[in-house]
């Protein structure tokens, strides 16, 4: 019978904490970048001309129809062939941002599409340009609608960040796996790992619940 012994986790704690820090670092930077990418893409696809629309659509389709692991390895292994050498953490951030950005743009796009065209006409009718219309009228209404699915995207990002251990980044998953293999303590390390990831994503869930309430508090959900 297998003896469950969580003391091994305590012994590996310093390394795990180092891993958690790396995972948080990668996740935070990637979240910001992914959101910005999502914003740019959704602006291109909803307000841009036909060329920008096409570029945005092609980007999203390429990203979401290929495995993230291929994208990760592409940045890590293929870019150096073109003379671009980046730190593995930078590679991880780039791949995660590009990947999640495509999904975030789709979430935002569904929000933008749910704002009626009359809102667009009213804003343009007052003389606001496309960017002002998007920034001041369309986006604030769209974001209120898509806060829950948007939160899911950031949660996915944190979980997907575990893939960066494949390209030699010493993140949380790397140390969990290392600890498990070194001590033959798979049960303890994977349970502990799952718990830590759940804690991190749980924080995001709480933050997004707050944001959702905050918008309600300031009155007026977008009524369309």
């Amino acid at each position: 019978m297998y003896n469950i012994n969580f003391d091994v986790i305590a012994q590996a704690a310093p390394q795990l904490i180092q891993g958690i820090k790396t995972t948080i670092f990668i996740s935070v930077i990637s979240s910001v970048c992914a959101f910005i990418i999502g914003l740019v893409i959704v602006f291109m696809r909803t307000m841009g001309g036909s060329l920008l629309k096409a570029i945005g659509a092609i980007y999203v389709e390429i990203i979401r129809n290929t495995p993230m692991l291929i994208q990760l390895y592409f940045v890590y292994k293929a870019l150096p062939d073109l003379g671009l050498f980046l730190h593995p953490i930078a590679c991880g951030i780039i791949a995660l941002s590009l990947y999640t950005g495509a999904y975030i743009s789709e979430v935002l796009r569904s929000g933008v599409n749910s704002v009626t065209s009359q809102q667009y006409e009213a804003a343009r009718g007052l003389g606001l340009n496309k960017w002002q219309t998007f920034r001041l009228i369309i986006f604030p209404q769209a974001i209120r609608i898509v806060i829950p699915p948007l939160g899911s995207q950031f949660i996915n990002l944190v979980k997907n960040s575990s893939l960066v251990s494949f390209i030699a980044v010493t993140d949380l998953f790397y140390f969990i796996y290392k600890g498990a293999v070194d001590d033959f303590r798979f049960f303890e390390f994977f349970i502990a790992g799952a718990f830590v990831y759940m804690t991190l994503t749980g924080i995001i869930a709480v933050i997004f619940n707050r944001i959702e309430k905050m918008f309600k508090l300031h009155g007026r959900e977008a009524r369309v």
Partner: peptide, 20 residues
């Protein structure tokens, strides 16, 4: 056109106030 639109006011059937 933005300048022209700012000089020509338009009022719609459904008001189209900005709800937020």
């Amino acid at each position: 056109l933005n300048k022209i639109r700012s000089e020509v006011g338009i009022v719609f059937q459904q008001f189209n106030l900005f709800p937020h």
